[in-house]
Design a protein around this nucleic acid. Structure first.
Lengths: 224, 224, 224, 224
DNA sequence: TATGAATGAGAATTCATTCAT
DNA sequence: GATGAATGAATTCTCATTCAT
């Protein structure tokens, strides 16, 4: 079936097909046979190039991570204007998730499997994810300029902006049903980016009042 | 010979075992045989009571949704004190996710499958999820009292508080690795609840400045 | 294909088919599919009853050993006439090998695999092989009567009579070619039983001169 | 670039690796890939030099036979002293088996396959195996000198001495387990060579009483 | 003389599911 | 209400072998 004798091409075709398959069906649901045929190759070649279904899955994870890292590296923010930079970072993250549903799906899947596979990948750990460093510099400058409040935790801010974008997309099916809205309509998406931005900016603003309260106050609401 | 009590018990045992299995392995990864043996029953009984793997999966989804709905119904918030009520709702949601990892996992899984199964469940749609109504009243009262800003969108507020809690837990494996922190340590969890609360409260406060900006301003940051 | 719902029968048919297949092709060469079809069953049933190809192989080994043990148990020798008893034992062993080529083949195969599988069988070790005890009593009585020489080692005698029968049959293909004789012709077989008998009897006779010689005498013949 | 020396070397390395592989795993169990990698070559080269797995196997068989034939040719027995010569021949055979486990394993394997491959080798038949001729002369001289009995069958004597050595080694795994002895200990091996010698010498001695008895006498012992 | 890429057939094993009782 | 026996269709993976260079 495969017409070319170009190893790199074959490998790349398999990898791409695998990405789609793992996104659509998860690790267990994915079928080696479907990958090979949609990649215009053969099962045999998958084992030739990747060794096993799991190794292929890991290769997909690595490629997906590497792409995100590369995109982050290409970010050029004007750090002298922290608020604008933060907005850009939020928008970048949101759009990345929006335009890379396979990234979202693969990450969710990997978490469902408790990070089992990613733990086996020596490569992923080494991949550079510059975003935390970038965000740290932005927040620092913002604090210096007095436009952000002091004592911000980079990780918390990152989690916030990531969570707001990711969750909306990763859980869109159950959410759409629950909220009775099609979350993927263009306007809905744009509105949500605005909302994310609003929430994050508000949370880092100097005038944001502390939300904590004395530890001894206990809710009466039970959870189960 | 066997009374209907036994039958109910068998059914319940299977359902519980299935919940664990689907949580741990997802729909495709789950094995009927594992469910029957961990539920001290037989494959045959699963078909006797539920008809198919998929029907069992849907039954699990429904039970999990029903439990959340029931817990929400038991919520008793003092709606005359909107800020406190909102705090309680946030804490409730967070703790529910924290204490019901199977809920989080099953929801994520269902979304990975694009809501395929939930769409087939007539039951789930009918299940009452009172949380939106509750939140709506809280926000309304807060606006009336002037402690929340006007024009809040209940859905957005709900998405925000849900996202912040859910994402932290659903993606904890990849996040722990990326942030180089064990997110599940008790202090980390408590700190995150505080952070969620802070963020949400800030986002509904009247003094939260608008984050929007003219639509025509475009980021130069590219996403891919 | 399988007509009956009789579990024991199905199991037995599979086991029998497996015996033939493993005899003819060895462990690696044996095909699960061939076993299931020649046993008028299905691959699936093999896994249902035995769990794996290896477990099936071990079950075959065990059954084959058990049968030999049972046959030995049925031996009724007149121990008061040691020479006749020994003749009978020799003939029994020879005929057992001759009439149970699958025993010979399976044993050879297992030895080629360095006893890998038999080591995993807790059952085989426990199987009673009464032959050594029987032979011991025969030799003892023979020594007492003075028809056998003293100081015989039961194991050595057993090895001798077993080796002479087993080797002739197990290696008949290469031997036939090398000796340019069809070893399996009836007369050839009968002549060989006579020869085995002669050799063994001669080796236990009191007038058999010691064959040993001083250790310091070294052969000049080299082996490689 | 590569000289024919290299070619010979490559061929030889493959052949050696194949010998080990076929010894350890038999024909079916042997893997072309394992041979090529343990022979520091490639699958492709095996096909280049030998054409097929089976042809390689036959080449191995031939080489192994040729080596035995060569070793037999180097035998220098003092035929004027028949007893000593016979002892030497026995010791030679035993030691050859002991020191060439691959010969034993390959022969057993070939017999398990019913001589299928050896039949395809025109080469093997032509290989000289001088041992029978040597033994014939030794026995003849012994008869002439009166130290061996008359009417000996060279083939029977050869079978006896070969069987006693071969069986002990080829079946050592099941025998060790059955006899509850480690047959491969040095002392055990030396003792067994003594025993073989004793048995063979006794069987050819003039005073060995005939073991045969009237044909019409039938054993009562059954074999199955 | 050598090699990496490719292949088709078939290997063991597993799956959800149904039959007969 | 329950069970052991049976099944067909897949599933992952492996094998010896050949192609193109």
């Amino acid at each position: 079936m495969a017409s070319s004798r170009d190893a790199d091409l074959t490998r790349a075709r398999i990898l791409k097909a695998a990405r789609g398959e793992f996104m659509r069906h998860g690790y267990s649901g994915a079928r080696v046979g479907r990958i090979s045929s949609s990649g215009r190759s053969s099962d045999r070649m998958i084992y030739y190039y990747f060794g096993s279904k799991e190794a292929l899955y890991i290769a997909v994870l690595e490629s997906v991570y590497a792409e995100l890292g590369a995109a982050e590296s290409r970010l050029e923010l004007d750090e002298s204007r922290p608020v604008e930079a933060l907005r850009s970072l939020i928008a970048f993250t949101w759009r990345y998730y929006l335009e890379h549903p396979e990234f979202v799906a693969l990450l969710s899947n990997e978490n469902l499997q408790r990070g089992r596979h990613i733990a086996k990948s020596p490569g992923v750990a080494k991949l550079s994810r510059p975003v935390l460093g970038i965000l740290a510099r932005v927040l620092e400058e913002g604090e210096r300029q007095g436009v952000f409040r002091r004592g911000l935790d980079v990780r918390h801010v990152y989690l916030t902006l990531a969570a707001l974008g990711y969750f909306y997309l990763s859980n869109r099916y159950t959410l759409s049903s629950f909220l009775d809205r099609d979350l993927m309509r263009r306007e809905a998406c744009e509105a949500w980016l605005e909302e994310i931005t609003r929430v994050v900016i508000a949370s880092v603003s100097p005038d944001a009042r502390a939300a904590s309260r004395p530890r001894h106050v206990r809710d009466r609401a039970k959870t189960a």
